[in-house]
Each structure stands twice: as C-alpha cells, then as structure tokens.
Design a protein around this nucleic acid. Structure first.
Lengths: 333, 333
DNA sequence: TTGTATGCGTTATCAC
DNA sequence: GTGATAACGCATACAA
C-alpha cells in the first residue's frame, strides 16, 4: 500500500505538507510544491487511508442502516433515499438485513459499534425487540434514529399510520361498503398495529361493529395477501372490501379474488399501502396509500447529521401520506 | 470513547492481556484474569475500534458493492444475496447506487479505496464505462469481481443471457408465433445486448427474418414496457408475442395490451426475465426466465473471499437460468 | 512556507 | 502467564 510517506518522499517534501494539500488546509502551501505533490499522488495512485485519519479526527463518515429485508419495497425505498442523502452529505452507508431476527440485529449493532459509525438508522425495529446495547450508550457519540414507532424514546421519522388507515377505510365506507375486512402484518409490527387501529377507528366512527373474522393476519408478502383473501372470501358472509397493509399483500389479494372467480373492483374492492412504482402498470392499478419511503430515508439521514451537528431536531418527525386512487375500488356489488 | 486502556486499567492488567482475550489468542491467559477482563469489557460497554485494528492487521472486513439502482428487482436480489453471504463470512458491505452515472461510480470507487475495502463487486457496470482507476491497481490487495459481461478482464459472475433469450424466444416459436417482437433495455446494457442477440439467433434459426420495427428500446422499467407495447401494437402488422428483458417491462407490456383492449395471452403472448417473487401473485402470472439473483450475489462475495485467500477461482463463473411458465403465453390468435 | 514530533487505539514482537 | 514497547498511517500543535 502506498502511504502518505511515499508521496512525501516522491515529491521531496514532508508528510505534513502533503497532509495540508490533502485536506485543503488553509495553511498556505506554495503553488509549485502543491503541483509536485498532486503529481506524486496521481502517479502513485495514492488514496489516503480513511481509518488512520479517523483515529485522529474521530470521524468515520459512515452511517449504519438496519432494515429487516431490502427486498421489500418499503425498505428498499428507504434504503435508496438514505443512501442518496448520505452520499450527498459525504457519508457512506453500511447496510444490514436483520431478517427480523434479533440475533442478527444484535450482531449488526455490534459490528456497527466496532466500525465506529457516526449514526445508526433502524427501520422496522418495531417488529423485533431492540437490542439492549442500544440503550446503554444513548448519549454517546453515535446518533441513533428510528424509522417508525417503536415505543422507545429515540429521535424518529414517522408517518401517521393510524390516520392513513382510517382515511383508506373511510374511503371504502363512503363508497358504500359495510363489510370491510383487513389483512394485517405480523402482530409484532407497530406499523401493522397502527393501521389496524386506524381501520377499527373508521369503522367505529361509522357505527359499524368490527367483526373479528374480518381481521386476518398476514406478513406483508403477496403470498399472505393471497391466502388472506382466500380465507376472507370463503367466509359465509364475505367482505365486499379488503384493506391490506401494503401493496404486495394488496396485489396478492387481487389475485386471490381472481382465482375464486371474483372481479376487482366489481365484486371486491381492495386498497393497499406504499404505492410501489410498479403499481401504475399492474393489471389492476391498486388504490393505495402513498408512503414517501424515499423521503423517509432521506429525512432519517438528515436527522442523524443534524444530531451530529448538535442541531435541534423535531422528533418524532412526521411525513405526510396520501390516498391515491387506482382502479381497485368501487361501490359494493 | 472507551479504549482498550480503560479496560486494562479497570481489570488491573496490561493492554496486551486484554488484547489477547479480545482476539481469542492461543497465548495462554489465566482463567481468573480472563474473567476479570471480560467483566470490565461488559461493564464499560467496550467495543474494540476496528480501524485501529485494521492499521495493524491490514484487514477491514468490508466489501464494497456498486449497483445502478437498488430499487430494481435484479439488483436488490443481488444485494440481498451479497449481504447475506458477506455477513456469514464476517464481512460488512458498503453499498453504493451509481444511478448509471459515471461520476457517481467514480466517486464511490474513490470512497471504497479510501475505506480500504478488501473487495469491490460491481453489478450493472456493463451499462457505464468502468472508471479507469479500476485498472491501475489490478493486482493490488483489493479484489474486484464483476457481475455480468463487461468486456474487460476481471473475475466475474454471469448468466448466459444469449442462451436464455434464445430459449425464451424458441418457446414462443414452438407455440406457433411468427411475429415476435422484443422490448430491450438501454443500448449500452450488455445484458440487453445479449438478450437481443439470443432473440435474433432464435428467429434466424427458425428461418424468420427479424424485422427492425419489432425491436423497440426500453430501459428495464415497467413504464418502458408499457410504452414499448403500445408502440408495437400500433404497428400496421403488430406482433403476436413480445419478449421483454425483465419482468417490470413485461408487466408494463401486459398492462399496455390491456389498455388497448387486447387480452394476454389470447391476443398477445409475453415473456419476461428475472422471475420476481411478486409474479406468482400478479394478475397474470408472467412466463419468465428465472435469473438467480440471490445466488449471483452470494457467488460474487464468495469469489471475492476466495480471491483474498489466494484460491483459484473459475471465471467467468456461470449460474444457470430457467424458463418458468406462467399464464402469459399461448398460441397466436 | 515548510518541517518535526506526538498521539490516535490497536496488535505484534520480544522480554520477563 | 504477563507486560513494555514499537509500529500501523495519518493530522495536528508547535517550531523554524
């Protein structure tokens, strides 16, 4: 490996001078000297060692991002936004998929600590117990930002899932639906819990008694949406509308209806969450609540950086959601 | 920050001894001493600084991963597999989205160099010019593995896109189609180029003259599939089957047919690539060529690690593809 | 405008 | 079994 000393030797100067041009120090450096050094750097293909630098400055310019599964549109949206913002602000991101397994989350947290990341963003932590190590060092140099509601007191970026689900359900009610079901996410997911609550509130306000058999548990996958719809539609008194907690479930539910010979939206209305990009070109454009995942990711990084700069941050910081109409909802048959 | 010295002081031993227990050194350490040290570590919440360690060992246990866009199923599949394998092998991954912008790719490469990553995996590089910096240091300590065909001589993981596209096209031919069109990716994408070649080969072998108006350029998005299908279906002599270069395009094309009042597969047959998971629950299950993205990501990391261990690797390393039948293909009308 | 010396937190070498 | 110390590559305080 070529070091700053090699550059200094080649340029015939001291390492200090090299360091000064490397860091655009305001300490004056002779133009010729600078040119010589830059030439040496280029010629040797020298890249400063970020870690030797870190040892002195204390900074790593790394932000850690923990998500359950990058394959899920909600999380890849967040990851994309976080990565973009981090890059713009001069940070690299180390990403870890926890698979919602506490042990993996612990392991990652340990890894991020050892790597001295400046901030850690945790998304989807609501569905696992957060590692206790997180709490020992709350006022330490590593800034922690959570995405979503976790019931613990860390700075966080959120959307109002209760309100969003209530609006979605309200929309179905206004279309005239009375028998509205919901396919949830895992019971441990705060996102799912909140959306379920919104659904219930809307029904209650409309004077409709929520039926327990209209609540089936899913897991945010298309498969669970498919199976959930099948369960619901085989009830003796099946729903005419189904709220799902994300678009994958929603699309799965659409397919479930189709396979039972039911049409969407003629026989069954369906709404989803996330407004994944692909939706605009799916066979039936799902009516869906837009969750600004990209912006959430960006905001989380921005919050980490603000915290590092000791700025005051507004937390929890809420981003807006919006019901976007597609083709999957209509009046009840 | 708590350092190894703090631990040593607290345990009443030297840093050397602490270091020994930290690294499970085979140098003997008294059981009681070890216990005291472990207690101190836990009590202080000490995590060794990976970078101070790196300065001595030379290792960072980081692998860099460059992808155009994590939002694309092909790439998030790869990212997922790479991350999982890296985690198992004790590596963290720094991921960068290049947006297919050379400047961003350059910037990331620089960043990865400064961060002294042990390996760099580049996916989708076929669609941009690879940064020249890559080539100055080919025999350096950083191992580089490419995913896909790039026309440059680096170890790589690939699938045979020519063969895969030929098989897909052959399937349509066997169904009786004569007028088969293709919606490609960007002209610079080697993946797209190879799939186009496979398509052409299949037609030629069947004695069919490929018509230039049956080749429309897309960009791997659902939108471009939608628009491409519209272009094709408005021809005076429209195709009865369309090959697309990924599932997003394929689903977009399905929707394009629908919006023109054409049915799939009754009026138009469509095949895609990637076999994204959601497909099983889409309204029309797309017939699609399975690309083992997860395994590709895993294999790339494994190759990096093998190279680091000076093992011989078989390169290019090919992974198999497989045409999986769905509901989107049938005989021509 | 340039250079010397110190130290960041750790591992490795050597001595005890 | 244990410990003192040099070295890793760099930035910084201080000196010239």
């Amino acid at each position: 490996m070529v070091t700053i000393r090699d550059v200094a030797k080649k340029a015939g100067v001291s390492v200090t001078t090299v360091s000064r041009v490397l860091n655009n120090s305001d300490h004056p450096v002779n133009t010729e000297t600078r040119a010589k050094i830059e030439a040496a750097i280029k010629e040797l293909g020298y890249y400063p060692n970020a870690w030797a630098r870190h040892l002195i400055t204390g900074r790593t310019s790394i932000i850690g991002l923990m998500v359950p599964d990058i394959t899920n549109p909600y999380y890849y949206g967040i990851a994309r936004g976080a990565e973009a913002a981090a890059h713009e602000l001069g940070y690299a991101t180390i990403m870890g998929n926890t698979d919602r397994v506490a042990k993996k989350a612990y392991r990652y947290l340990e890894l991020l600590r050892e790597k001295r990341v400046e901030g850690i963003i945790i998304a989807g932590g609501g569905s696992i117990n957060l590692p206790p190590q997180l709490f020992v060092d709350k006022s330490g140099p590593t800034k922690i930002v959570l995405i979503g509601r976790h019931g613990v007191n860390f700075p966080s970026i959120r959307v109002d899932n209760v309100k969003a689900a209530r609006e979605a359900t309200d929309y179905l009610l206004r279309l005239g639906h009375q028998r509205i079901a919901i396919i949830t996410g895992m019971q441990t997911s705060t996102t799912s819990i909140d959306r379920l609550e919104g659904y219930r509130k809307a029904l209650e306000e409309a004077g409709i008694n929520p039926r327990p058999e209209y609540v089936v548990e899913g897991d945010f996958t298309a498969k669970s949406g498919y199976e959930g719809a099948n369960r619901l539609l085989s009830l003796s008194d099946p729903p005419t509308a189904i709220v799902t907690v994300n678009d994958l479930e929603g699309l799965g539910a659409v397919r479930g209806c189709l396979d039972r010979g039911l049409r969407v939206p003629d026989d069954v209305s369906i709404v989803g969450f996330d407004r994944i990009e692909m939706l605009d070109y799916s066979y039936i454009r799902l009516t869906s609540v837009d969750i600004p995942t990209y912006e959430i990711g960006r905001a989380a990084v921005q919050m980490v950086v603000d915290l590092l700069h000791e700025k005051n941050v507004k937390t929890p910081f809420y981003l807006p959601t919006k019901l976007v109409l597609g083709e999957s909802c209509g009046p009840p048959p």
